[in-house]
Amino acid sequence: MFNEKDLVSKILAGDLHAFGRLVTGYEKLVFNIVNRVIDHPEDVEDVCQEVFIKVYKGLRGFAFQSKLSTWIASIAHRTALNELKKNGRKVWMAPMEEPVHLLSGGDDPEKTVIRKDVSLYIQQLIDQMPSQYSLVITLFHIHEFSYQEIEEITGMPLGTVKGYLFRARKLLKEKLECFLKKETI
């Protein structure tokens, strides 16, 4: 991607374009974290901007004791939690409705429909999970953070991180099994 130390030095030397590159490099990570914690989609972009302003202000104090991504992720998590405290908690969703079928017909229609549906179904399931489950899943699977890094980002004890990840995957697997059985009947 880019050399983090070089990039940080350039930013500290006054290069705003370098900071733009840093934002581009980490915007998905920040968005995914904020989006998992905050329930108002209209606020997510503002909170993400706030995160990067904090990153920018705190960059001089960052001493590379952890990965830059871990540090940015922990700022994103803290900022999102503070925003949540200000504007109310995320609602725990009721069990999900059946997913919408995206496709029908085609050369291998049944298999394509199932694949497409599985994708949508899993995304819906993750969106409707309690935020700590979906956050841990996102950090571990999409951004490939280790258990220790997730502990550092979220402040959850290591055992809790492992527990959430295990339970979230188990729940998803069970739901997916039921879903596929229903689809193949």
Binding site: K28, F31, N32, V44, H141
Partner: peptide, 10 residues
């Protein structure tokens, strides 16, 4: 599927 980016983004 878990490794896929969510469809919505900034």
């Amino acid at each position: 599927e878990l490794q896929k980016q969510p469809p919505v983004t900034l």
